[in-house]
Amino acid sequence: MSTASMVPPATLDVASTPRTPFVRLVQVEWRKMVDTRSGFWLLTITAGLLALVMALIVLVVGLNDFQVDARGISQGMTIPVSLLLPVFAILIVTSEWSQRTALTSFTLEPHRSRVVLAKLVAVTTLAVCTIAVAFVLGALTNVLCAAVTGNPLEWNLDGSELVWLVIQQMLFFAMGFAFGMLLLNTPGAIAIYYVIALMLPLMVWGTLYAIFDWAKDVLPWVDLGFAMAPLSTGADPLGRPVDVEAVTYVQTAFTALVWVGVPVALGMWRILRAEVK
C-alpha cells in the first residue's frame, strides 16, 4: 500500500492587505446616513420646515410692516435645523447596533475608532452643509422682507455672533452623537437628547430663569444653550442685551465638557469594549 500524501491546508494571508482609505469610510457612513428612507424623510421635512419658516417671516412682516434684521432671521432659520437634524447624529451610531450591522462594519474595518471617527466626519459635514443652507435662506428672507416692506436692509449680524451661532449648532449635533455613542440605543438616545436640549430649556429652565435670581447664576453652568446665549445672540435667554465676560467662555467650555466631552469619552470606551453580535 502506498502512503497517502498529505496536502497542506490552504491558507489566506491578509497580512499585506492595505487598510481601507479613511475617505472611503466617510463615504460609506455618509451613504448609510442619507441614502435611507429615514434619512430622506428627515432631510425632506427639514427642508419643508425651512421653507415654511421663511414664508411665515415674509408673510408676517409684509402684513404688519415689521422691521426685521439679519440677527433675528438667522436665529429663526436655525430652529428647523436644531429640531430634526441632530437625529442623524444619533442614528449614524445607534443604527449599527439596533440593525445588527456592527459585525459587518467592524469585520471590514477592525479598528473601531476609525469607524467612529468616519461617522463623526460624515455627520459634521452634514451639519455644516445644512447650517450653510439655513443661513443662505435667512439672507434671502432678509432681502425679501426688505422688498415687501420697503424698509432698508439690516445686516446687523456680528461676525463673532455668526461664528458662535454655528459653533452652538455644531455642539448640539455633537451632543446627539455623544448620546448615541453612550447608549447605543436609538429610542433612548433620541428621548434623552430632546429632553435635555429642548424640553428642559423651554419648559423648566426658562421659567426658573425668569422668576428666580439664583437661576441666572446657576443655569449657565447647567445648560449649553443658556451658557452660549450671550456669545451667539449678544443677549441673555430673556432677550436682554448683556456683555460677554470671561466667565461666559468658562461656562460654555464646562457645559460642552459635561454634555459632549464626557459622553463621547464614555461612549468610545463602551464601543471599543462592547461585544459585537
Score class of each variant (00 low, 15 high):
219 L>Y: 01
253 A>S: 04
230 P>N: 11
25 L>Q: 10
117 L>P: 03
8 P>A: 15
69 D>W: 11
52 L>Y: 12
192 I>N: 07
69 D>M: 10
110 P>K: 13
129 C>Y: 12
186 T>L: 08
115 V>M: 06
155 W>G: 02
14 V>C: 02
41 W>D: 06
97 W>K: 08
263 P>M: 11
225 G>F: 09
44 T>S: 15
34 V>N: 05
130 T>H: 08
159 G>R: 07
230 P>G: 08
273 R>Q: 01
234 G>V: 05
188 G>Y: 09
21 P>G: 03
114 R>G: 00
172 F>M: 08
4 A>Y: 14
178 A>V: 04
112 R>W: 07
250 V>L: 13
65 D>H: 10
26 V>D: 07
257 L>N: 01
210 A>D: 03
276 V>A: 00
161 E>V: 13
109 E>F: 07
73 I>F: 14
222 V>D: 01
157 L>N: 13
266 L>T: 07
117 L>R: 12
68 V>I: 15
20 T>D: 00
180 G>M: 05
221 W>F: 11
121 V>R: 10
183 L>C: 14
95 S>E: 06
144 L>K: 14
249 Y>G: 03
210 A>F: 10
14 V>N: 04
245 E>T: 15
227 A>H: 06
248 T>H: 15
125 T>M: 10
36 T>K: 13
48 G>N: 09
40 F>A: 13
28 V>M: 04
74 S>M: 15
149 T>A: 04
231 L>G: 11
183 L>Y: 14
107 T>L: 14
210 A>T: 05
232 S>L: 11
112 R>V: 15
273 R>K: 07
13 D>H: 14
274 A>V: 15
185 N>G: 10
18 P>A: 02
158 D>G: 11
113 S>P: 06
134 A>E: 00
60 V>D: 01
249 Y>C: 04
136 V>Y: 09
45 I>F: 10
163 V>T: 15
29 E>Q: 09
154 E>M: 09
156 N>M: 05
143 V>T: 10
124 T>G: 06
66 F>Y: 09
221 W>E: 01
77 M>V: 15
215 A>S: 08
233 T>D: 06
28 V>W: 11
227 A>P: 00
147 A>W: 01
62 G>C: 07
189 A>D: 00
272 L>S: 14
5 S>W: 08
9 P>Y: 11
149 T>S: 04
235 A>F: 15
275 E>G: 07
185 N>I: 10
62 G>S: 13
277 K>H: 07
271 I>Q: 06
72 G>Q: 08
183 L>Q: 12
183 L>I: 14
47 A>C: 08
207 T>M: 14
57 I>S: 02
7 V>R: 08
234 G>F: 09
240 R>C: 10
70 A>Y: 05
93 V>L: 06
207 T>A: 13
163 V>F: 15
191 A>G: 10
63 L>H: 12
207 T>Y: 13
1 M>K: 10
97 W>M: 01
147 A>N: 00
149 T>I: 05
249 Y>I: 09
8 P>G: 08
245 E>G: 13
221 W>M: 06
227 A>L: 05
186 T>E: 02
81 V>R: 13
38 S>Y: 05
268 M>V: 14
229 A>T: 14
14 V>T: 03
99 Q>G: 07
41 W>F: 15
15 A>W: 04
105 S>D: 12
64 N>D: 01
191 A>H: 06
210 A>C: 02
185 N>V: 09
212 F>G: 13
